[in-house]
């Protein structure tokens, strides 16, 4: 006996983050009752994306080509390389800044207690790029979790052994934030690494 297609769809939708039994049912009914075209488009787009999207061979970001758009562009500087944990971080930095260097996406972070080591993050590939591309500065933009900081230290040692400058994203009070409502670790860090006013 084959599974009911409707139940299959509900089960499949639940692989999405934030989607439980109720939202899956709502989504499925919306597509079936009111938007069959939208459903077909979604199915096609999903199939194509799952088939064609892979990792860029230079920066490990997602792309449908050998190399991603940013790595291929000749308008971007090869001197500054920004290292991030996830493709979402690239999107966030692209949207928020005028950064014109290139990226390297770790697709994870060092987490020795979970058995995730340097070899799992493509750091040998990063090492090759550092040796070959004349990178002058690495911007370390890993998260400010314990694992993100452990990764930052590893990147720093990789860069220093090649005499490459490193910088780390500043950490502090959010813009428009009120001190009173800033969490205590962030505030302590912001206080101890305060900057002269310019």
């Amino acid at each position: 006996m084959s599974a009911d297609p409707f139940d299959e769809l509900l089960e499949a939708l639940r692989c999405l983050p934030g989607v439980g039994a109720r939202s899956a049912q709502r989504m499925a009914l919306q597509l079936l009752e009111r938007d069959r075209d939208g459903g077909r488009r979604l199915a096609d787009a999903l199939a194509t994306a799952m088939r064609d999207i892979r990792r860029c061979r230079r920066c490990r970001n997602f792309t449908s080509d050998e190399e991603c758009r940013i790595c291929r562009s000749d308008r971007r500087s090869s001197e500054v390389l920004c290292v991030v944990e996830s493709p979402g971080d690239v999107l966030a930095i692209e949207a928020a800044t005028a950064f014109d260097g290139r990226y390297f996406v770790l697709l994870g972070r060092l987490s020795p207690l979970d058995g995730i080591g340097p070899e799992d993050l493509g750091l040998d590939l990063l090492g090759e790029r550092l040796d070959e591309e004349g990178v002058a500065e690495i911007i370390i933009a890993t998260n400010t979790t314990v694992e993100g900081e452990a990764t930052a230290q590893y990147l720093r040692e990789m860069a220093e052994s090649r005499s490459i400058r490193t910088s780390r994203l500043a950490q502090g009070v959010p813009l428009g934030g009120e001190l009173e409502h800033t969490d205590r670790s962030t505030l302590a860090h912001a206080f101890s690494s305060r900057l002269p006013m310019r």
Binding site: L110, L113, G117, Y154, E157, S161
Partner: peptide, 11 residues
């Protein structure tokens, strides 16, 4: 794993 990290890091 942390011992490997401390011993094997580059630089």
């Amino acid at each position: 794993a942390t011992r490997r990290l401390l011993a094997g890091a580059k630089g």
